[in-house]
Design a protein around this nucleic acid. Sequence first.
DNA 1: CAGCATCCTGCGTGATACTG
DNA 2: CAGTATCACGCAGGATGCTG
Lengths: 123, 123
Amino acid sequence: MPNARTKPACGCPVAAFQKIISGKYKLRIVWDLKDGPLRYSEIRSGLLRGIEGTGEIAPRVLSRELKALAENGLIDRKDFGVVPPKVEYRLTAKGRSFVPVIAAIRDWGSAHLGGHVRQAQAA
Amino acid sequence: MPNARTKPACGCPVAAFQKIISGKYKLRIVWDLKDGPLRYSEIRSGLLRGIEGTGEIAPRVLSRELKALAENGLIDRKDFGVVPPKVEYRLTAKGRSFVPVIAAIRDWGSAHLGGHVRQAQAA
DNA sequence: CAGCATCCTGCGTGATACTG
DNA sequence: CAGTATCACGCAGGATGCTG
């Protein structure tokens, strides 16, 4: 497509975004994956950081979010086909392009919603 | 922030963000409000742009989102106390600071989720 | 280890009706 | 016009148990 149409017409992309990241863990999963591929249980335990007495995450839930993320092309599932099972999830290019957006969210959140997270960088 | 909590970077702000913008219309409302104050019904009709056959938005739903947004300090409700009723909603400073984040979302969405930022007409 | 199958519950969302 | 009240429903999300 030639020429950038900077025409804020409708909120469609926002709605689409909402749909894609609907779910409690999707954003966090993508965020955690930004540092490299992770296995199922690594994602799971990573998700538990920062959650106090909420109990565990139902495998069914995590599984579903992972699948949805994969279907939306944000992450890629790599099954090593070994036993015991080993599966890795990694960001796709699309998923990586999404990281800055989450960074913006995180940044805003830490600035306006309690701010108990250190800045990621120094200016 | 007096006490050095300095918890390591967790997904907390992201989770908080998720909570605040939970709801189908919150992001769109804030986005629509970025151009200036709007009245209840203006928001309502503005929300309908880009939604095809989804039907109307239940006043109860919109009302709740507005209230939640106000309680989270993103928007401000201004009741003119006249009859017929006139109420305006406008972004607070916090809400305005949130607009760039939505812009990032929108930007990413239009780049990776179809890219039809322009109207769905005049293909 | 990485899931899937099943059941259950709360709440977000929508529709309809009513009011100041 | 700008809501509130009430009812109903689907689905996200959690708990538990099982499997390859």
